[in-house]
Design a protein around this nucleic acid. Structure first.
Lengths: 221, 221
DNA sequence: AACGACCTGACAATTCGCTGACATGGATCA
DNA sequence: TGATCCATGTCAGCGAATTGTCAGGTCGTT
């Protein structure tokens, strides 16, 4: 999953970014309000982590402008200011959650999982489709209860497809969420990856929609 | 909106209930775990406010059982225990938000608004005309429930016609929406495409309006 | 009847996605 | 250091699906 991290302090940003990367996310960072606003408005992220103490543009104003433009990705606000009035403001501005500094990285990850899960309309950190189950907390995939070892890229691919099961996901969207970004697309790396995942998880999990993308069907019970 | 408030302390329960009532909610209260679990499992609430310090049954266990039974209403957890580990547990159990006591009533209301807002906003994206149903999320077309495989161009054609069913769509408009733009057509590619779609979905779906374009009637059959 | 709009079947060129084989490069360990 | 494994990218080729073209046919309108 692709995340936007908005944090002006380089040290903190890199700490958070590496923790997120270790948890399997693709992270992009913005260090000022302008960049944050532009990226959040034009790119698609699975979630945004937004520090309110920004130079250039107020974080809440950015959030409100995103929401005003119909951007609905989940947003987790970070701030040193922890008064309840601030929290109310943040939540009413359209934030999905609010985390006061200092915080434990574990809590950040838990809240992130929560808002992502919620925005996908699920209530468990385990998603399943057919015989396949994905446990996002443990980053573990199993087929009929048998755990299957996946490489990092394979895991991201499966995770994104399962989070969006029941919907056709374009190759471009997969590119963005599995690989970082900016890859020249004269390569068939994605197709190879799909093939490898199919070999491991069975050929029926991922359907091809020629010309459009891939689909993991919703399990019809 | 109808809410379930789970809180064993009568004093606190009535304080919260009256604040919620003042904000325009209809509130029902459960004072022990058994009642809470039963009500949450059988009734439909817009949201649940769940105090963890319950007699009878642990709040998190109740929440997990709800989620396990497919109850997806938004849940806001209240608790005096405010350690980060507890919060992580609550969120991972499927809570939508977590509010440590003591709290301001304004913050409770703000968080409630937030989780309710979040849980709304799920639309179906299925269009149908007569026997034909189009699921735009899955890019799937079915006739009388039987899924039919369509090529990309065929799908775009059907999608555009169904989105604008009940009105005549000109060949030019179809050209623009099915193919990119700028095609000189001395070709009858579009007519061929129409033919192929009719062969797959039945000859009655698309009517020809000679000299004007094509029409998918609002509800044939 | 004549004309033009539209339909149909057949065919060929092209595109698309899949696969197996190989190359690269980083991590690990003796 | 060198051997080895694993993850991943690249490439070439295959096979099938897709789609434009064309050559008639059909139908409706005047």
């Amino acid at each position: 999953m692709r995340l936007l991290l908005v944090e002006d302090d380089r040290r903190i940003a890199s700490d958070i970014a590496s923790a997120l990367a270790a948890a399997g996310y693709v992270v992009e960072t913005a260090r000022d309000g302008e960049a944050a606003w532009f990226l959040g408005d034009t790119e698609d992220y699975g979630a945004v982590i937004l520090d309110l103490g920004l130079p250039g543009m107020d974080g809440l104003a950015i959030l409100k402008r995103w929401r005003g433009n119909g951007r609905h990705m989940p947003v987790l606000i970070l701030t040193a200011r922890a008064s309840w009035a601030e929290r109310v403001d943040g939540i009413d501005a359209g934030a999905d959650d609010y985390l006061p500094k200092p915080f434990r990285m574990e809590e950040l990850l838990a809240r992130l999982r929560s808002i992502v899960r919620r925005s996908a309309g699920h209530s468990s950190s385990v998603v399943s489709a057919g015989d396949i189950a994905l446990d996002e907390r443990q980053m573990k995939v199993s087929v009929r209860g048998v755990p299957i070892a996946l490489s990092p890229l394979e895991y991201r691919l499966v995770a994104h497809l399962l989070r969006h099961r029941g919907r056709v996901v374009s190759q471009h969207e997969l590119d963005e969420n599995v690989y970082g970004h900016g890859e020249d697309h004269d390569s068939n790396a994605l197709e190879v990856l799909i093939g490898r995942v199919r070999k491991k998880l069975g050929p029926d999990l991922i359907e091809t929609r020629r010309g459009f993308g891939y689909l993991v069907p919703e399990t019809p019970a």
